[in-house]
Every structure is written in structure tokens, then in C-alpha cells.
Amino acid sequence: MSERLLAEFPDEHAIAGAIRALRETDHRVLDAYTPFASHEVEDALARRPSRLPFAVFVGGMCGAGGAYFLQWYLVAHLYPLVVGGRPPHFPVAFVIITFEMGVLFASLTAVIATLVVGRLVRLTDDVQGTAGFETATRDRFWLAVMSHGPGEPLRELLGKLGASRVETPEVA
């Protein structure tokens, strides 16, 4: 039966080496927990780059398109009042609000996507309660690994790879 373990590493290089080493074995590296966005760990995990910018582009275009349509529909179609001798449909004047709404919806999409994809709208999760895990937001680097077989051999392997501490995650 497979078991999930959490290993604490003193610094970036240690955890990066451990990740590369573990990838050769058939243990599954679930995720790393780092106090800051470390490039080394990211390269080591070698996951697909985030597709968030694409979502943001789509959100931005919807915002801009929707804003332009709304302005045209209200000002040029429903009640086409003439002001200052300008024709009711006056694209030059619609550009600014279109741009602003494009930026607004793009930003909202970015933040909401981050919260959703990062599953951030929560107070706690499965690893939060593990003993000593608070150092993950201080100076230590934690690694979550799913053992292939029983947990024991993985525990020693992690020790050898430089883990200063290995814990089993507490389901609070």
C-alpha cells in the first residue's frame, strides 16, 4: 500500500537534488512547499508552464468586446441622442472605456484563476497540520512524496538525500 510522506530540507540545493533523485525512482513526487518562488525547485519539478496568461487574454478580450458592444447598444441604438453635433455612434470616444474594461476583466480573471487553480479559497488543507510544517513559510523547504510500496524504504532514502526531518501529514 502506498504512503504519503513529508520531508523537510534545509536549503534549495538539497531539495532540488532530492527531487531529481526521486524522479529516477518510481516514488511519485507530489509537490514541494517553498517559502519563496525558487527557480531551482521549479526547474527540478519540470512541470508544464502555467496557462493562466491565456485565460487572462480571453478574459480581457471579453471585457473589451463587451464594453464596446454595451456602449454602442446603449448610446447609439437604444436612445441615440445627439450631443455637440457628434454622431451618436462615435468609435473614437468608445475606445477609452473599452480599454479600461479590458484591463479590469483581464485582472479579475488573473486573480480569480490563481485562486481557483491554486485552490486558495480555504483556511487550511491536508498538510497544514503536520508537525513543524510552519517552517515551510520561514526558511525550510518541504517535499511531499507518495511512496511506491511501504513507507519505510522511502523514509531512509529521503534521510540519505539530506532531509532533515520526515513526517507523515496530519489530516487535521
Binding site: Y79, L81, V82, V83, G84, G85, R86
Partner: peptide, 13 residues
């Protein structure tokens, strides 16, 4: 000039 600056169509032609 007063018409195109009113934000709520309070003045128009």
C-alpha cells in the same frame, strides 16, 4: 461644447 461633456445626457440637442 456643453453637450458632449455632460456625463448623463442632462443636456443635448
Amino acid at each position: 461644447p456643453c453637450e458632449y461633456v455632460c456625463p448623463v445626457y442632462a443636456t443635448q440637442h
